[in-house]
């Protein structure tokens, strides 16, 4: 098990090198001078040159890159050009905010999606099934920000129940969570539905019926856990994507999250913040995926043997063994 975790964490090295290299290359091709951006239009050319020297912007890109990576290894992601604060300490609270919303959203999306998926699998090819499909497709097709605006119209403008922007109170979290959550309901519903239908036609379901088990227990005890394997997989991926991907919604709802931070930093040419933000998201994603993969062992005991022995092609081997 430990060997497997270490192996997966070592993957972080190429990820960090790769992500930072891409952003460094983009930075070289981007017009505009960060030093000028920081000092403003009134600064003299001498001041700008001195600032460039101070920031190390005159060194060759490769030197800047190596210096940056050296810092990252020691946990130093540089300082924000705008505030002079360490990037890490600026990002961590924003990441926490984004994470809260993401977790809430994934919970809402997954619970709704799984329930609807089970419902349409059990009522396959009936009007219930079709209705569920239409509703979930609707929320997947309509862009998140449109749903966001409609929700704001209803709950903030008309009903005055929830704040339109900001997260000063707990209520502020509700609309962003619901909004992001609804957009993922469709995919959970479809995965759950197809996975349930597949599992319900398995031989071991027939074995359970042959034991005299009730349909309710068959669905809950025998089918659901097996059907959840692909669903859990997609929850893991969604969780990662949603943390970094909430830029538009964080802007609409005025949430000070990590997505909005990166977007703002890009417009300000605040490269250390962009780089730091991207790298930290990449690291968090890797760790989330690792946790998700390990948690599969809880659902599917077949993986235990392979993960403990340190195999990386766990699912394939498990299938062959079965």
């Amino acid at each position: 098990m430990l060997r497997y975790i270490v192996k997966r964490l070592l993957l972080l090295i190429p990820i960090i090198l790769g992500v930072s290299a891409i952003i460094f290359i983009l930075k070289t091709f981007t017009p505009g001078d960060p030093a000028r951006q920081i000092l403003g239009n009134d600064a003299t050319q001498e001041q700008v040159d001195a600032k460039r020297e101070e920031l190390g912007l005159n060194d060759p890109v490769i030197v800047q890159y190596v210096r940056y990576i050296g810092g990252v290894v020691r946990g130093d992601f540089g300082e924000s050009y705008r505030t002079g604060e360490p990037v890490l300490s600026e990002i961590v609270p924003r990441l926490a905010t984004s994470a809260k919303i993401t977790l809430g959203a994934v919970a809402i999306g997954a619970v709704l999606g799984i329930l609807l998926g089970i419902l349409s699998a059990l009522k396959k090819y009936t009007w219930v099934d079709s209705l569920v499909l239409v509703i979930s497709m609707f929320f997947q097709s309509v862009p998140e920000f449109v749903v966001a605006l409609v929700l704001i119209m209803i709950f903030s403008v008309k009903l005055h129940l929830l704040p339109a922007t900001g997260i000063e109170t707990v209520k502020g979290y509700i609309l962003p969570m619901v909004c992001v959550g609804l957009s993922s309901v469709a995919s959970y519903t479809r995965i759950t539905r197809s996975s349930m239908l597949e599992v319900l036609s398995e031989d071991y379901i027939r074995t359970a019926r042959a034991k005299g088990q009730t349909e309710g227990n068959i669905t809950y005890h025998h089918a659901l856990r097996n059907a959840m394997i692909p669903v859990a997989q997609s929850i893991g991926t969604n969780l990662g994507n949603a943390i970094g991907g909430g830029m538009v919604l964080e802007t609409v709802f005025g949430v000070p999250g990590v997505g909005k931070y990166i977007v703002d930093s890009i417009t300000q040419r605040n490269y250390p913040s962009v780089l730091g933000g991207a790298l930290i998201i990449a690291i968090v994603l890797t760790i989330i995926n690792l946790v998700v993969d390990i948690s599969f062992v809880l659902i599917d005991p077949r993986l235990k043997t392979t993960i403990i022995s340190g195999g990386s092609k766990a699912p394939k081997k498990a299938k062959a063994a079965a």
Partner: peptide, 25 residues
């Protein structure tokens, strides 16, 4: 009533033991 019969009074052994058991139990 049939659920009480199955498993108790009539049992069945299926053809393919590879798939007849629930993999997560």
């Amino acid at each position: 009533e049939m659920r009480d019969v199955r498993g108790k009074r009539i049992s069945m052994i299926f053809q393919d033991p590879m798939t007849a058991l629930n993999p997560v139990k």
